[in-house]
Simulated scan of single mutants.
Amino acid sequence: MPRFVPDPEVLRLGEALAALRRERGLSQAEAGSRLDMTSQGWGLYESGRRPGLFRPDVQRRLTGALDSTPEALALILGGAAPEPPTSTAGVESRGRDFEALATGSKRLEVRDDALSPWAEPGVVLEYQPGLPPRPGQGCVIEMTGGAVRVRLFERSDANAIHVRGAGALDRWEVIDRREVARLSAVIARREP
């Protein structure tokens, strides 16, 4: 059986992706987890063994997980040094303390165990107002009456938002859209 040899151009693009990831101080596992991908899956892109790395949508997805852009990836590919991150949006890592807030983001401290073990009391969540959450991502729901709920987003439709975490992660809640002033994605968690 012949051995797989990646295309040299794909390999160079994968190496540029690896340089961008390292500049952000992330492991392959940390970068992959931001996309619900394993470290091995991320490593396949960096080694040029996963197809699609030249596709713009794939590049946006991968560089977005690194709080970067496909343009930054192209600059590295062209020989420029990786630029430091301009935002901490989506950054989460145990043992590191990120003080800077992403532009326009807000913080909220978890006060109960409704989201345990995802977020224990004392965890500070950083969220981006108006940024739609992905399924399984934490979200902050600002209600029309002024109340604020922190939940795990599952899905939404024209009439309702479906979330988990009202007292336990296995408990589902359906919230009428007319009661929601704003739905925002959690972009970072800070452990106490």
Score class of each variant (00 low, 15 high):
109 E>L: 05
77 L>A: 01
93 S>R: 15
80 A>P: 12
80 A>K: 13
81 A>V: 04
108 L>Q: 00
85 P>L: 00
111 R>T: 02
121 P>K: 05
82 P>A: 01
100 A>K: 13
81 A>Y: 07
106 K>R: 15
75 L>A: 13
84 P>W: 10
76 I>C: 10
94 R>T: 11
75 L>M: 14
120 E>S: 13
115 L>R: 03
104 G>A: 03
97 D>W: 14
117 P>G: 00
111 R>E: 10
123 V>Q: 07
125 L>G: 02
86 T>N: 06
107 R>L: 08
80 A>R: 14
89 A>S: 10
127 Y>F: 15
84 P>M: 07
104 G>N: 05
84 P>F: 09
103 T>Y: 14
89 A>H: 10
113 D>L: 04
128 Q>N: 03
115 L>G: 01
120 E>M: 13
105 S>G: 07
126 E>N: 03
100 A>D: 15
93 S>E: 11
99 E>Q: 15
88 T>R: 05
78 G>A: 06
75 L>P: 09
74 A>C: 07
79 G>H: 12
103 T>W: 12
122 G>L: 12
79 G>Q: 10
84 P>G: 04
111 R>M: 02
105 S>M: 07
91 V>M: 10
122 G>P: 04
99 E>T: 14
115 L>W: 02
122 G>D: 02
87 S>H: 05
103 T>A: 15
80 A>C: 11
113 D>N: 13
126 E>D: 06
127 Y>A: 02
94 R>E: 07
90 G>I: 04
101 L>S: 11
101 L>D: 13
125 L>H: 09
100 A>Q: 14
122 G>A: 04
98 F>P: 11
98 F>D: 09
85 P>V: 01
81 A>R: 11
106 K>H: 15
89 A>M: 08
127 Y>D: 00
96 R>T: 10
109 E>C: 06
85 P>F: 06
123 V>R: 02
112 D>F: 10
75 L>C: 12
113 D>C: 12
121 P>G: 07
97 D>K: 13
115 L>C: 03
116 S>R: 08
82 P>T: 01
112 D>Q: 03
114 A>S: 11
88 T>I: 08
94 R>Q: 09
78 G>K: 04
116 S>H: 10
97 D>P: 08
113 D>T: 11
123 V>S: 00
109 E>I: 09
85 P>K: 02
113 D>A: 14
127 Y>P: 04
114 A>Y: 04
105 S>Y: 09
82 P>K: 00
128 Q>M: 04
112 D>S: 12
114 A>W: 01
86 T>V: 11
77 L>R: 08
100 A>F: 13
126 E>Y: 03
